[in-house]
Each structure stands twice: as C-alpha cells, then as structure tokens.
C-alpha cells in the first residue's frame, strides 16, 4: 500500500506534501514515515494518509473566462487607467480612487 506523507515544519504551519512511503499497513507506514521524514528533526508533525483515501479532483473548465472568480480577475491597473481617463487625467481623483480601492 502507498501512503502519502504530509509534513508540518513548525507548530501552526500548514501541512505540505512531503512524499510517500510504501508499507503493508498503517502501523508500518507510521514507523517508516517517522524515520524517513522525521529523523533529522525536520518535522513538527506528520499526516500519514492511505493514497486511496485521497480524492483527487480534476477538470476545471473555464469556457466563459469568468475571471471575476479569481483574485487577479479585476486588474486594478486597468481600472485606474480608465478612471484616469474619465477624470480627465487629474491626479487628485485618481489618488482618491486608489486609496479607497483596496
């Protein structure tokens, strides 16, 4: 059986995928992960998860380019440029928009 190992480097930090171990059962996986990902004191904690327990999800379509779902979906620079044009290029109004536009 393959077990995926996730490693936490410091208390409170997010667990990140470290690699995998092959083991006949969960106890062996625990011991092998401990030696492979913890013996240099490089880990605060480990998650050892059977690969079968992980549901991998694919197929993210974006046929209609719905960029507004993304953080970068609203390019601020572009908005500033448009606002600048509308305001006739006065620096004051652009600054005001910029300051309020977090």
């Amino acid at each position: 059986m393959i077990f995926e190992v996730f490693r936490q480097e410091k208390k409170g930090a997010a667990f990140a995928h470290a690699g995998s171990v092959e083991a006949p059962d969960a106890t062996f996986a625990h011991a092998y992960a401990h030696e492979q990902y913890g013996r240099r004191q490089e880990s605060e904690a480990l998650w050892v998860v059977p690969r079968d327990a992980i549901h991998e999800v694919h197929d993210f379509h974006d046929e209609l380019h719905q960029t507004y779902h993304r953080v970068d979906g609203y390019p601020l620079k572009e908005k500033l440029r448009l606002a600048r044009e509308r305001a006739g290029g006065t620096a004051k109004s652009v600054d005001a928009l910029s300051a309020g536009g977090g």
């Binding site: 171990v21 092959e22 083991a23 062996f28 011991a31 092998y32 030696e35 492979q36 013996r39």
Partner: peptide, 12 residues
C-alpha cells in the same frame, strides 16, 4: 527486505 525498511532500520 524493502527500501522503506532499509531507511528505517539504518536510522534505528
């Protein structure tokens, strides 16, 4: 007997 065991037993 296996790579994983090799690493674990050597570490012990």
């Amino acid at each position: 007997p296996s790579l994983e065991e090799d690493v674990a037993f050597s570490s012990i």
